[in-house]
Amino acid sequence: METGNHSCGTDFTLVGLFQYGHMDTFLFTVITLLFAVALIGNITLVHLIRLDQTLHTPMYFLLNQLSIIDMMYISTTVPKMAANFLLDTKTISFLGCAIQASVFLTLGGSEALLLGFMSYDRYIAICQPLHYPVLMSRKICCSLVAGTWSSSSINALVHTVYVFQLPFCGTRIVNHFFCEVPSLLPLVCEDTSQYEHTVLLSGLVILLLPFLAILASYARVLVVVFRMGSGKGQSIAVSTCSSHLTVASLFYVTTLSTYTQPQSMHSPGRDKVVAVLYSIITPVLNPFIYSLRNKEVMGALRRHMG
């Protein structure tokens, strides 16, 4: 492997997403519009949940947290990418890269765990409705959210500290549009195969386990609902579960494909496309999937729009 500058103070160069000549401006415009739509959609949902008393329930408390995470999630990558494009520069400082990687890991882990807790909320509401006020009390909801943030922060801190104390070689060109751990490993001068096993383990715990819990929860929910024989209840349950499952599937499948694959199987072009899906598209879709298919949210929106 090429050797060169190993100092911690050297900047990184982000290859970026815009590498298509005359398509640069078009792609930049599309990404900027998606960023604006994501912010407007999530801010509207957060504001609506705060204002409307009918939405002051555990389900919408968790949804409020998801919207906050999504706003921060997309803001971690897009503004820097836009600034680099407008200023015709592709550099990011060593410290800036470390902070971006750490924040991105924290938010990604938080979203993965939170989506799992949201499926637990729906499972309790439909399968154990009499115990719902106890099992999903305000205190328990706050504990779930606190556990989500703390565990994902610790995981992100451990990975960031380890990766950024490794020796980086050569020109430090990151073939990505932001600093993400898998995209930084090819720049390391040491053998990272053992560390890749740690990344795989973290991905299985933080991503795969919640996804399997979601699938199991909704399988149980659908079994219980269809046994009831109520057409209206079945319709509501299927609508709620399908909305959440759509969001979860898009997020988990794409992130799992990045964080549970060996480094030898990574392709920079494919990684960037997949990263767009879970870091940009998912935050854009979340508020619309949860609001447009939810009568309570749409009713609250109509009330507050007069």
Rank of each mutant, 00 (worst) to 15 (best):
I31L: 11
G203S: 06
S75V: 02
S143E: 13
Q53H: 15
L144Y: 08
D24L: 03
L62E: 00
V284Q: 01
L66Y: 00
Q128H: 14
K272Q: 15
H304Y: 13
L200E: 06
G109C: 12
C97H: 02
H47Q: 15
T10I: 08
C141V: 09
V247G: 03
F18V: 10
I74S: 07
T171L: 11
H244F: 06
V276N: 02
S110R: 04
T3S: 12
I154H: 01
H22E: 13
V297R: 02
S152L: 03
G109N: 10
L250D: 04
Y120M: 02
Y162M: 08
N155Y: 10
L212E: 04
L130K: 15
Y259T: 05
A156V: 01
I214S: 04
D11H: 08
I154T: 08
T89I: 10
L115S: 00
T44Y: 13
L209P: 02
I206F: 10
V221M: 11
A248N: 02
C127F: 03
S150K: 07
P210K: 06
C97K: 00
Y252A: 01
I69F: 07
M298K: 13
L200V: 05
A146Q: 06
Q128N: 10
L17I: 11
N84F: 01
S93Q: 09
C179F: 05
R303W: 05
G203Q: 01
L277V: 15
I281Y: 04
H56W: 12
Y120A: 03
S153W: 05
P287Q: 07
S257R: 12
H244R: 03
Q234K: 13
R138Q: 13
R172H: 08
E196C: 12
I289E: 01
R302V: 06
V161C: 09
G229F: 07
T89H: 14
A248T: 03
R122S: 09
Y252Q: 07
V163F: 05
M118E: 03
I281L: 15
S242H: 03
L292D: 00
T255E: 05
M228T: 13
L17Y: 08
F178V: 07
A275V: 00
V37P: 01
A237C: 05
N155G: 04
C97E: 00
M59C: 05
N294Y: 04
I140F: 09
R227L: 14
S93W: 12
S239C: 14
M265L: 14
Q19D: 09
H131A: 12
F61A: 10
I289H: 03
F164W: 05
